[in-house]
Amino acid sequence: MWKILDNFFLLLRETIFFLPLMFLLIGLFDVWVPREKIERHIGYGSGLAGMFWVILLAVAQPGPLYGAFPVAYILYTKGASVRNIFIYLGAFSCMAIPMYAFEIGFLGVKFWFLRLIFSLLVFVSIGFIMERFVGEDFRVREGR
């Protein structure tokens, strides 16, 4: 039974030292790169530039996937392409910059870098596939 407490403090010691550093970085990021700043620059082109800005908008803030749905709706009303809407969802869910500190701290730089590259390839592909198969009759509703 005492082994549980033993484990607890052992794990805690491994975790607790990272946390203040991580949240320091997250806090600074939040202050220096507010989302509105990127939103102003969004050009909803369908080319590489549009994709780039959509990804940049997505990675600026962390949050659960369902937090991205309302933003996807706004992107849709502003004329973003099907492909870019799903690229936005992909980037939002697996490339949030404030989470980098956590990932590097607990899993290492190599893991973080490789997962980032592979995720990028996968969710951009998903964007293209979605465009191909749901393209014509795709609609985003307000979710109510």
Partner: peptide, 16 residues
Amino acid sequence: MMVGTLTLPLEIKYFG
């Protein structure tokens, strides 16, 4: 991060 089974009903409301 990418798959949301529990949030699927919500996602359907948004995207069909």
